[in-house]
Structures are given as structure tokens and as C-alpha cells.
């Protein structure tokens, strides 16, 4: 009735089989869904960070600049913009790895349908992590364009803060996805956001350096990936490269993402093999 499909090997392009990796099929699913709702997603994803950029960077900036400016005398907008670039990616990715992933386990059960195909639990994890990262790229590029338009960029290196934002998003998304796979309801997410994500947003050096924090809180900020993402992106966009410190920042972000991925592999498999 139907001609046999060409074997996967025959369709391998220059990417050598990578393009037919099963995890990419999950990404395609999400893109198919996204085709319908992308406008509202982008709008809601960007409106809040823009508000912060305007109110803090420009509004609060007027006051800060009049009183000597941000540390090192840079305009406050230039100081806060790269941090907001990173935090908006982090906030969006954290949200995406909580409720929508829970839905795929519990409410819509999208994962259960996919498991009756050659896809496995790890493909679902990797595919959806790629999807969340992909949206972090989209949002970050747009947000960066806005920063450029406001003239809040001090160095060509600033463009590198986009990949930093995406890496920070992954450093949050992977562990939260791993956590989501262990939960039956979305109750814990409220706690996670109220007492985890939101305080991080405020106290990880986004709006002021962490050395202004009470002494006992500083090591805490140091231990979170957001601080490292913000520091790295800010340094790059102000044109200050400190190889050693920047490598540490990268390593911490990478470690969070990798640990989350390893943990997620375990929790996804456990959750989906009943």
C-alpha cells in the first residue's frame, strides 16, 4: 500500500546522522505547536523585561547617574541591561521547565503518546531542553536588539552576552526539568518561584553588586548560576574580559546544566517507566 520509507542512513546529510536524531523530533513537535501561539508568547515573554529595562535602566538610572553612576562609573542603563538580558532568559526558561513540562507529564500527557514511538524518555528530556534553549535564543536576540537601540552597549563583545544568557537559561531549565519529573502536582512550583527564582532575580547582582548584600548572603549568591551568568554578561558587554573569572563563570553555568541533564535522565526515566 505504501512504499517503504528510505532507511534513516540514506537520508543522512552533511550533519552525519545528527539531523535525524530522535530528540530533534521532540523539538519539531514543539515548533509545530509554537506556530500557532508565537506572537502572544513573544509578547508576554518580553513585555516584563522591557518594563524593567525602561523603569530601572532609564528611570532609576537618572537618579543613580546623578549620584555618581553604577560601579566603575558606567551609566546605570549599560550596567543593568546585560543583567536583564540574562535574567529574562533565566525567568522564561524556569517557567517553561516547570508548568509546561508538568503538563506534558500530567495534564496533556504529551509524553505518553510519544513513548509509543521509537522515542525514549531521554529524547523527550533533551528535545524539550533544546526547545527551551531555542526560545531563550529568540527572546535574547530580540532583547539584545532593544538594548542596542537604546545605545546601552559599551563593547562589541556585548553580542556574546546572548550565548551567556542562553547558557544561563539551560543552567536553570535542566535542573528544574529534572525536578518537575519528580512532582505529581504544580504546588511546589509556587514555592520554587516565590522563594527561589524571584529572590535570585533581585539579589544576584542584577540591579546592584552582590558586595552590597549582607555578608552572610554573599556566598549564597555566589553559589547560584544566575550570579555567574550576570557577571559574565555584564563584563563582556562593558568590554571587560577577565579570563580566569570568566572561565569560572562558564564552568559553573556548564556544571549546573550538565548536572541537571544527568539528574533529568534519571528522573524522566523513572517517571515514565511504570
Amino acid at each position: 500500500m505504501v512504499a517503504p520509507a528510505s532507511p534513516p542512513a540514506a537520508r543522512r546529510g552533511p550533519l552525519g546522522g545528527l539531523a535525524s536524531h530522535p530528540s530533534l523530533r521532540v523539538l519539531e513537535h514543539d515548533l509545530l505547536v509554537f506556530r500557532r501561539g508565537w506572537h502572544s508568547y513573544m509578547l508576554s515573554g518580553l513585555s516584563q523585561p522591557f518594563l524593567y529595562l525602561i523603569s530601572m535602566g532609564i528611570g532609576l538610572g537618572l537618579y543613580v547617574n546623578r549620584n555618581g553612576g553604577a560601579p566603575d562609573g558606567v551609566p546605570y542603563l549599560n550596567y543593568v541591561a546585560p543583567a536583564l538580558l540574562v535574567t529574562q532568559a533565566m525567568m522564561a526558561a524556569s517557567f517553561e521547565s516547570a508548568w509546561p513540562i508538568m503538563s506534558k507529564f500530567v495534564w496533556e500527557k504529551t509524553y505518553l503518546a510519544a513513548l509509543n514511538t521509537p522515542l525514549g524518555a531521554t529524547n523527550l528530556l533533551v528535545g524539550d531542553l533544546m526547545w527551551i534553549s531555542f526560545r531563550a535564543v529568540l527572546l535574547s536576540v530580540l532583547f539584545f536588539a532593544a538594548i542596542l537601540a537604546l545605545g546601552a552597549v559599551s563593547s562589541p563583545l556585548a553580542v556574546l552576552s546572548i550565548p551567556v544568557a542562553v547558557l544561563t537559561a539551560m543552567a536553570f531549565a535542566a535542573p528544574i526539568m529534572a525536578f518537575t519529573a519528580t512532582q505529581k502536582t504544580d504546588q511546589p512550583f509556587n514555592v520554587l518561584f516565590r522563594f527561589g527564582i524571584t529572590p535570585l532575580f533581585l539579589f544576584s547582582g542584577t540591579f546592584f553588586p552582590i558586595d552590597r548584600l549582607p555578608l552572610f548572603l554573599q556566598p549564597l549568591a555566589w553559589a547560584t548560576p544566575l550570579y555567574h551568568g550576570v557577571s559574565l554578561a555584564r563584563g563582556l558587554s562593558l568590554g571587560r574580559v577577565e579570563p580566569l573569572a570568566d572561565l569560572v563563570h562558564l564552568a559553573v553555568l556548564g556544571a549546573f546544566a550538565a548536572t541537571g541533564l544527568v539528574a533529568g535522565r534519571i528522573t524522566f526515566r523513572r517517571r515514565l517507566a511504570l
Binding site: 520509507a5 528510505s6 534513516p8 537520508r11 535525524s20 530522535p22 523530533r25 519539531e28 513537535h29 509545530l32 503518546a113 510519544a114 514511538t117 521509537p118 522515542l119
Partner: peptide, 9 residues
């Protein structure tokens, strides 16, 4: 999308 999951073009 199910066809894609099964690696059909």
C-alpha cells in the same frame, strides 16, 4: 508529528 517520531520524511 507522529510520522516524524517514526522518522518518516
Amino acid at each position: 508529528i507522529y510520522g516524524r517520531y517514526f522518522d518518516l520524511s
